[in-house]
């Protein structure tokens, strides 16, 4: 069982379903393995694995151009690597996509020792990308809020998964 106050994979899948996601373009990290098992067993979700996070941006743009509803699932480290692809392929082509970003190094008490966490929100603010923080199941409706904002603005919106309890690894 997931620990109390954690974000459960079932909640994530429910949010994907509720928002009509058809394809997950992703590169896994250590905290998403259980989510992978659920996603890969779902016949209505197509998983497209990439080898570099920036590739997810152009693939998602192509899926959107062809009428699908993709979601991107990566870690914050890869998001930093993907800056120009986010700019060119998602923002430049007006792609309304939600990027679910694992917030590696995040801690609720605010003492950060992992430099990628130090730069994550600063990166998003520099790129003017709206973002929401989701820490546990009670925050999950923020994911639907992110989908609504992406659709309204025709731009990418980020959901940071600040799951310091490692709910995906139960």
């Amino acid at each position: 069982m997931a620990e109390a106050n954690s974000l459960s994979p079932e909640t994530m899948i429910a949010q994907m379903k509720a928002n009509g996601v058809t394809d997950i373009v992703w590169l896994p990290d250590s905290e998403t393995n259980f989510l992978y098992l659920l996603m890969s067993s779902d016949p209505d979700l197509r998983l497209i694995g990439v080898t570099r996070e920036g590739h997810a941006c152009s693939i998602a743009a192509g899926l959107y151009a062809g009428g699908r509803k993709p979601m991107i699932l990566i870690q914050n480290t890869g998001m930093l690597e993907s800056g120009d692809s986010i700019r060119g392929w998602l923002m430049g082509l007006d792609v309304p996509v939600v990027m679910l970003v694992g917030y590696r190094g995040y801690t609720r008490h605010g003492v950060i020792t992992d430099t990628v966490a130090h730069y994550t929100e600063r990166f998003l603010m520099a790129f003017d990308i709206p973002f929401y923080l989701v820490e546990n199941d009670s925050d999950a409706d923020r994911i639907s809020t992110a989908f609504a904002l992406a659709e309204k603005t025709k731009k990418p919106v980020v959901v940071l998964i600040g799951d310091e309890f490692h709910g995906f690894n139960r």
Binding site: I48, G62, G66
Partner: peptide
Amino acid sequence: LGDPAMGGHAGFALGLALAQ
């Protein structure tokens, strides 16, 4: 598309091919 970000055309084409 011009050059949205170099290296991405193949990914865009893949996504489009899967969608259509």
